[in-house]
Amino acid sequence: MRKLNWLPLTVLGSALLLSGCVTSGNSVNNNQPWHMLPMAVPLQPTTQQEVQLARIDQILLRDDLTERDRAQLFYERGLINDSLGLRDLARLDFNRSLSYNPAQPDVFNILGVYFTQSGMYDAAYEAFDSSLELNEQHQFAERNRGIALYYGGRYELAVRDLLKHYNDNENDAYRALWLYLAELEKDGPEKAQQGLRARYDRSDKLDWGWLLARMYLNDISEEAFFREVMNTSTDNAQLAERLCEGYFYLAKRYQAQGDINSAVALYKLAMSGNVYDFVEHRYSMLELSRIAYDLSHPPSS
């Protein structure tokens, strides 16, 4: 099994997980100083977001709004709160939005994501089904239902959804990556690797995410991947987004290899940039929660 032979993960204190230390899996190579690790300044609320929130709050005080307008405003405020990591406030706004207009596939989709993050998979399936009933072409609901099925351990159904999602746009690297992760559980590493290789070869390779696929395919090293991220990111926001993605998918790779120490550290790093509305940030916390549960509930002998 490959070691994490260059990423200096000592920054996370030997990968402390919640209330305890992870002890399973391979140990992490600590030969390099932690400050060598690629990092971005965590994203902060912008003036524009604060102004938008204040403006929506003001408009909602009016008594001449139609129910449809009020539903839209609660939805928009929920999206802003979600992008700021204020998930409970966002969920409250999304539910308020549905109370004024229940025929909103976008709202059911984001609520399904929240249910997935909370491990409430049956509720997530229902939310995504509702979204797709209202709009059968809803690409995000299609993908997110596949991800929920993946986390719910229903790998065959997950592959079905994610394969359809991939076929809708074969040049989208992230569709190929999530399909690969589901196939990894369903079919094993060899077949999943073959599938990812075939999809990479027939893509136009323009999507930045294909660099992640190349790392999975061992076409480039982890060091080369992160060097490319640092060299091509145009500003701190883009750097934070790309590192969020890179650390998440690398964590998934090490977790699949049984290196839980490295996976935990990398999931924490995926969250460190505050890119709250990326699925990679959303599901890093879910991954950490699942690892914590597994460690506190070891299989009986």
Rank of each mutant, 00 (worst) to 15 (best):
R2Q: 15
L7Y: 09
T10M: 04
G13S: 10
A15S: 14
T23G: 15
N29Q: 14
H35T: 10
H35L: 12
L37W: 08
P42Q: 09
Q49V: 02
V51G: 00
R55C: 00
D63Q: 14
E67I: 00
R68W: 05
D69C: 04
Q72K: 12
L73V: 00
N81C: 11
D82I: 01
G85I: 07
G85D: 13
A90N: 07
R91M: 11
R96C: 04
P102M: 11
V107H: 02
V113D: 03
A124H: 01
L132I: 02
L134M: 08
G146E: 06
Y155E: 09
E156W: 08
D161K: 13
L162R: 09
L163Q: 15
K164G: 14
H165I: 00
Y166M: 08
N169M: 07
E170C: 03
D172K: 05
R175P: 01
L177M: 15
Q193A: 13
R197A: 14
A198R: 14
R199F: 10
D201I: 12
L211Y: 04
L211R: 13
Y216S: 06
S221F: 07
E222K: 09
F225C: 05
F226E: 01
E228N: 08
N231A: 11
C244Y: 02
E245R: 14
Y247K: 10
L250R: 08
A256C: 01
A265L: 09
L266Q: 07
K268I: 02
L269W: 10
G273K: 02
Y276E: 09
D277M: 09
S284T: 10
E287M: 10
S289Q: 12
Y293Q: 11
Y293H: 12
S301F: 06
